[in-house]
Design a protein around this nucleic acid. Structure first.
Length: 281
DNA sequence: CGTGCTGTTGCTAG
DNA sequence: ACTAGCAACAGCAC
């Protein structure tokens, strides 16, 4: 489940494995992701180059060389798994990138696997990074923004949408997907359908803190789980956080034992406690 | 067999 | 300008 914590942990794991190694080869089995994979450009500009850094922006993983960047997005079901061999090539293995440091260690084969193929491989020269459309309209990183609550409060004043959809809107904040939106609102005791404009500064302070805490906790958890990232049997890099509401429709609330309710917002399922998350007003 | 859900996000139509 | 809805796809529960 690639939300920000999963992408962050994966980014760190991939960084540790391929930084300062050379991309020896790129093999593609299915070009049809969200967009066609730019095979030629990757072969021309990434293959043969040394990876200088691996970074994350929102849920995008940026694999950079001196002059170029390969952007990878996992969509809903994408994953990267490191193997010591080019095998196995599974039904949904769409790309394999081979990295090597020349002599010392075994080569690394980074497998991109994505059943639903909503993911993305995108090439761009570093000099175009600042004008890349994928990043042009992204809001701040929740874990790097100093005055997150002020930022959210300020932007929410002119917005007409429920708070859950507001914190999931990449224009205002990146990295909060359906699971973490539900969990953060539960922790902050805010009804997901509350119009954003109605929330006070204090409520935004609380919500911002809960968003950060939830994301940090998940990253910490993932950091320990991801040790298995480099495997030969292909154990997935995903992990699960302790959930209070997501997917818990019909179960009792951990705080007050009221039955967790489900509603639909903007086509996504929302889970909340009708008692301790109050009324939407 | 359908049918309706699922971790994302960018395009389109109001 | 701003917002809601949908499509891209495969798998799974019922």
């Amino acid at each position: 489940m690639p939300e920000l914590p999963e992408v962050e942990c994966l980014t760190r794991a991939v960084r540790d494995l391929i930084r300062l190694k050379r991309c020896e080869k790129a093999t593609f089995f299915n070009y049809k992701l969200r967009r066609p994979i730019p095979v030629d450009e990757i072969n021309r500009h990434i293959v043969g180059q040394t990876i200088t850094e691996v970074k994350r922006r929102a849920k995008y993983i940026l694999v950079t060389t001196t002059n170029d960047t390969l952007v990878i997005h996992l969509g809903m079901t994408g994953n990267l798994i490191a193997y010591d061999t080019p095998n196995p090539i599974l039904k949904h293995t769409h790309a394999i990138l081979k990295f090597s440091d020349g002599k010392k260690g075994l080569p690394i084969y980074l497998h991109y696997i994505d059943p639903r193929r909503f993911g993305l491989f995108h090439y761009l020269p570093n000099k175009d990074l600042y004008k890349e459309p994928l990043f042009a309209n992204l809001g701040p990183e929740p874990l790097e923004m100093r005055n997150l609550s002020n930022h959210l409060w300020y932007n929410s004043r002119s917005i007409h949408k429920p708070i859950k959809n507001f914190i999931m809107d990449n224009k205002f904040l990146v990295g909060v997907g359906n699971i973490y939106a539900n969990e953060s609102l539960y922790k902050a005791r805010i009804h997901p359908a509350t119009p954003s404009q109605q929330l006070t500064k204090e409520q935004f302070k609380n919500l911002s803190n809960q968003i950060k805490a939830t994301l940090r906790k998940a990253i910490q958890k993932g950091g320990t789980t991801i040790k298995d990232f480099r495997t030969t049997d292909g154990s997935p890099g995903y992990f699960s956080i302790e959930l209070n509401v997501y997917g818990k429709s019909g179960e009792p609330c951990d705080r007050c034992h009221t039955i967790i309710k489900t509603i639909r917002q903007a086509g996504r399922s929302t889970f909340f406690c009708p008692l301790c998350q109050g009324n939407p007003h």
